[in-house]
Amino acid sequence: MKKLILGIAILASSFTFAQKDKDASAKFDAANKAAMDAFNAKNYAVAAPKFLEAYEILKANGKADETYKYNAAISYAVNNNIPEATKLYEELIAANYTGEQTTYTAKDKQGQVQSFDKTMWTTLKGKSKDYTDFKEEKTPSVEPELYETLATLYLNSKQNDKAVALIEKGLSKFPNNAKLKDFQGTAYYASGNNDKFATVIKEQLAKDPNNAENWYNLGVLQSKNPASAAEAEVSFKKAIELKPDFSNAYLNLVYTTIGDEDAAVKKINETNRTDKAAGTKLIEERRARFAKALPYAESWYKVQPENIDAVSTLKDIYTITKNTEKAAAMKAKLAELEAKQTK
């Protein structure tokens, strides 16, 4: 699950109401001030509906500005109100909102930067000698952040199919967006689309082959198919090479090497009923798999000597490979750990 992290910077916007709209102007000013005060006080539960109130006042007076809806969306998201935040982010993306604004500034005789609306700025630029350094600048688009945040909201609320569709749409517009690429793998995995998840991981490994987590994730996917078990072993070993204390990689390497133990035991029992020689061969093959897994299990235990699963697994492997002395030592260690848990 992706933790929602926002650089909670809201956007500013300003409107001038006509003289006849004094009542609407007063209501807007009051709602916007209440929203800003609440936001600055980190009272996001109050800020969000007040930003929406300001938005609705503007909309009712023919001056709709999605900036206030954007600010409300941020406030809801920071306050972990996922349903309301999701609704607003969906609306902003559907409206192709970018948050881009053009600012018009100039320096006065004291060297102070002053802001103007476009009409006044244009007039001063053409006629006034009191101002210099006229600049017209456009603020960056927030559209990529809309996709990133909504993808996170979808993933956190387990709307995985929606997350996949949104991320694919976002990457078609912003193909180099690192966050969306990262979220894409998570979304594919959460939605059960392991083939696409594996493709994403391989693309990431092609760019950064020293990422232990990606080697581990690739190994997990490969281990789900017996046909790619050997590839999974390679991936887990690569993860461990890059991160020697990677306990989960050792765990998965052990069980991938052993294989489907339940199926193996069932097959041995069935075969023994009709063909003892064939059954004995299967037993020897099983023991060989456990022997191969032994050094990985020992390394896992070395990394996590207090882990009951690591101790129990190593005990079973020693037992099956007929190392009775070490099996007894692990049995004693297991009893010690289990006793601690019951205290």
Rank of each mutant, 00 (worst) to 15 (best):
N40Y: 07
A45R: 01
K33R: 15
N81K: 14
Y44M: 01
N43E: 12
F39S: 03
A48P: 12
A34L: 10
K59P: 05
L52I: 12
E56W: 05
K59C: 05
S75E: 11
V78Y: 06
A77Q: 05
Y44Q: 10
S75N: 04
L52H: 10
Y44W: 14
Y44F: 13
A35N: 08
A30P: 03
V46G: 01
D65C: 06
D37W: 05
I57E: 00
T67Y: 11
A41I: 07
K50Q: 14
K69G: 04
Y76E: 09
A38W: 04
P49K: 10
N80L: 13
A73Y: 07
N61V: 07
K59V: 04
M36G: 07
K50T: 09
P83Y: 02
E66I: 04
L58E: 00
I82A: 14
P49Y: 02
A30W: 13
N71A: 14
A30R: 11
A31W: 01
A47I: 07
A60M: 06
K50A: 10
D65M: 05
E56P: 02
F39Q: 11
Y76K: 11
N79E: 08
A31N: 09
L52D: 11
N40M: 12
I57W: 02
I57M: 03
T67G: 05
T67D: 14
M36I: 14
E56N: 15
Y68K: 03
Y55V: 01
N80R: 13
I74A: 06
A41L: 10
K33H: 07
N43W: 00
F39E: 02
K59M: 02
N40L: 13
A72G: 09
A41M: 07
Y44D: 11
N32W: 00
Y44R: 04
V78A: 11
F39R: 00
A47Y: 09
A73R: 05
K63E: 03
N80E: 10
A34N: 12
L58K: 14
K63H: 02
A38L: 07
A54K: 01
Y70L: 02
A77N: 09
M36P: 00
F39V: 01
A48F: 14
Y76R: 08
A48R: 15
K69Q: 15
A72Q: 08
A60P: 02
N40Q: 13
A73K: 05
N80V: 03
V46M: 06
I74P: 12
A73H: 08
A54W: 06
N79H: 01
